[in-house]
Simulated scan of single mutants.
Amino acid sequence: MKITLDQDKCVASGQCVTAADSVFDQRDEDGIAVLLDAEPSPEREAEVRQAAAVCPVLAIRIQS
């Protein structure tokens, strides 16, 4: 699985971090999401899919 994050779309809601804090973080200065792991292990798939699902602006894309 490969993940892309469109930081230009991000509205700093933090939902991705709540769902998958080992894959996403937020910048201190403005709260915009940061991708920590673009190719997480298969064990993280459920939480990454949840993060993508709860993103209010659909800034997270998952490629299998």
Rank of each mutant, 00 (worst) to 15 (best):
V23R: 00
M1W: 03
I62K: 02
S13K: 07
G14F: 00
P42M: 10
Q26C: 07
T4K: 14
C10Q: 09
A53L: 11
C16K: 02
A20L: 01
R61L: 14
D28F: 04
L5S: 05
P56A: 06
V17M: 06
Q26F: 02
S22P: 05
V17H: 01
K2N: 14
A46K: 07
A53N: 12
A33I: 03
L5D: 02
E47T: 02
R49Q: 11
Q15T: 10
E29Q: 13
A51G: 13
P56G: 06
L5N: 04
L36G: 13
A53E: 13
V48G: 01
D8A: 11
K2V: 12
G31I: 05
V54P: 10
I60L: 06
Q7A: 14
A38E: 13
G31H: 01
V17I: 07
D21H: 01
M1T: 10
S64F: 09
P40F: 01
V48A: 04
I3Y: 01
I62D: 15
Q26W: 01
I3H: 00
L58H: 11
A33L: 00
A20W: 00
V57W: 04
I62M: 13
K9D: 15
I60K: 00
A33P: 03
K9A: 14
V23K: 00
E45Q: 13
D28L: 12
I62V: 15
I60N: 03
V23C: 05
D37S: 08
S22T: 07
L5G: 06
P56I: 06
R61S: 15
A19W: 01
M1N: 11
A59M: 02
L36M: 10
K2Y: 13
E45S: 12
P42A: 10
A19P: 05
S22D: 15
C55Q: 06
D6Q: 08
L35W: 09
